[in-house]
Amino acid sequence: MSARAERSGTVTAPAQETALGSFARAAIERNPAAVQLLGLCPLLAVSNTVANAAGLAVASAGVLIGSSLLAAALSRIIPAQVRLPCYVLLIATFTTVAMLLMQAYAFELYQRIALFVQIIVTNCMILAHIERSQTGGGATRSGILRALVSSSGAAAGFALALLAMGAVREFLALGFPLAAMAPGAFLVAGVLLALTRLAQRFLENRVRHEG
């Protein structure tokens, strides 16, 4: 456990972490988009409407959770030297499957966000998450369960960021068309990030004063 926390280099995990705690940590404390600032390209590009954002959130979640589970299950078989190529292979496979499924069952949505579904492969958020969570646990049942919980958390965190951006931009676009365009994405993302940081600092201060 300590090795895992050391490797992650951010927040020290409590020795016995509950599933809920691990989920919340992956989703909020280490939110892929708002805290780690990973995966911003699709976040900015696809968040012009809530529907687009939700579509990409579901596709990303499927790829992230699926490849995390398989990576955990195969962790004992995959030698360390070829770990990254194998992870990329897993991610690429899941992404292609997600693309095919979307073409078959959500064709209209696919036509709108096709490119950003394809480049889930290169979303560093996913590779970073798998690489970081593959240090302890391994192919045991608890290791796979842990991968399920933390990858679901990261997926939920990414979805949260996408939906927040999508909701704000779609609402603002009613009055300011700029919000739905590319410059609007940067402005909204910047303001939302600043607000997140403010809230974070406020909460930290309160905890310190009470503690």
Binding site: L74, I77, I78, P79, Q81, V82, P85, C86, L89, L90, A92, T93, T96, V97, L100, L101
Partner: peptide, 22 residues
């Protein structure tokens, strides 16, 4: 090194099979 090659090749074959099926 050989093990790495084998594992990667096996994974690729499995991935190809899954993709073909889907």
């Amino acid at each position: 090194a050989l093990q790495g090659v084998f594992v990667t090749a096996a994974l690729m074959a499995a991935a190809g099979a899954v993709l073909a099926a889907v």
